[in-house]
Design a protein around this nucleic acid. Structure first.
Lengths: 223, 223
DNA sequence: TAGATTGTTAATCGATTAACAATC
DNA sequence: TAGATTGTTAATCGATTAACAATC
């Protein structure tokens, strides 16, 4: 089968952004080519895994030489859909929501904060980091007007499911859930979960054992 | 072999905190017992997985009845090492560090912010959410005095490796890394990584495909 | 050509799941 | 006893890794 039709394993997809960051760094340093061995070092994995992962994108390496940094960067960006910005809406402007809005990390990486929404009328009309807070009722118009592609849930646990449902109703199919709650949504909605308490609890488990670094990870929790 | 000696798989460890939260909820609602089927629903996994996961803790269920919520809660807390608080130190009080310090989510779940450190002298001496900011040089004394168990890295990428090394030198063996960088540390140090940009990029990948919800997850990225 | 490094195969390992005997 | 549900086995699936032929 041709490379255009192979399905990329989930575990590989989760590593592509890590390679992407390494390649970006290499490109900034004007390094023209990179071997799987060196890229593996940078990404904190082994070389066989790098070669296997990259082979899902196509045969972009050159035997005896390595991978062309710029070319691989381009192919990988394309595969990840990162050749354009994807505006996000953050639901819930409490402590966490405000922090995320102020944190430049989203915008810098191609995910500008296009809108903020909350259910609290006293928050509506304020603005955070230059973005206005709207009532969550306005989600459908905001999604349409700002081209929102991804929803970020930063509400308390009790409000998360409702917020998610309203996002989906407004046409959003990708959700990043920071609330400590399990969302039930249609199977065609992609959900990823980030739970700071869960990460700390996992560290606590391995601490107790004091047999060290079994904690490997960037952590997608089951949605 | 007896239940005290079996090794708990990594994938199971990562789910225990999720079960723990479900059980806490059930206990608050005064629900005395729970079946694997119902717990699976709450946790967003299937029942076979729940039973297998719980079996690593011991044979704590009753056939025909289910699991005693309070008892399982206790056993699981014990296994995760959550019968006591584990104070954390946050390194880097920029946007993200301040947000994490202000966010109550850590303290609420048994991980109080015991100290804040930074390299910037202009930040030292200030205080955030009632916690003083110290210079990172003071880490060893802070760790000893406050009983710090876990280090949280909220520095820019360029400062992360140095901050981690100073944490390890100060006796910390568990690190939660929010910076977009790969840490190289001794194998006996547990590292977990949370990278918001990576999560969004994974969502971007599955968006492009529009074949939906392959994004499953709480995301441990390789350390 | 000789050395380096990819891309792929095959072996291994770990995680998931279905099924069902055990047993409350 | 009959019904419910666990705990465990065995089958399956997916991910990792080592090894090496292909080839620059």
């Amino acid at each position: 089968m041709t490379d255009s039709e192979r399905r990329i394993p989930e575990a590989t997809v989760a590593r592509l952004p890590v390679y992407l960051r390494c390649l970006t760094e290499l490109a900034e340093d004007r390094i023209p080519t990179i071997s799987s061995e060196r890229l593996a070092d940078m990404a904190g994995v082994n070389a066989a895994k790098v070669r296997k992962d990259l082979s899902y994108l196509g045969s972009y390496g050159t035997r005896g030489v390595g991978y062309d940094v710029e070319f691989l960067l381009f192919q990988m960006s394309r595969e990840l859909g990162l050749t354009q910005d994807w505006p996000v809406v953050i639901a819930g402007v409490g402590n966490l929501g405000q922090a995320l809005a102020n944190y430049g990390g989203f915008t810098d990486r191609g995910f500008p904060v296009g809108a903020l929404v909350d259910v609290d009328p006293s928050k509506v009309g304020t603005s955070i980091a230059g973005v206005n807070v709207h009532h969550i009722d306005e989600l459908p118009e905001l999604v349409a007007d700002k081209g929102i592609a991804i929803g970020v849930i930063a509400t308390p646990a009790g409000a998360a499911q409702a917020a998610a449902e309203r996002m989906v109703a407004a046409g959003i199919t990708s959700i990043l859930n920071f609330s400590p709650s399990v969302l039930s949504l249609d199977a065609d909605v992609s959900v990823r979960k980030v739970d700071l308490a869960v990460e700390l609890q996992i560290l606590s488990f391995y601490r107790r054992r004091s047999d060290g670094a079994a904690a490997v990870g960037s952590s997608p929790l089951d949605a």
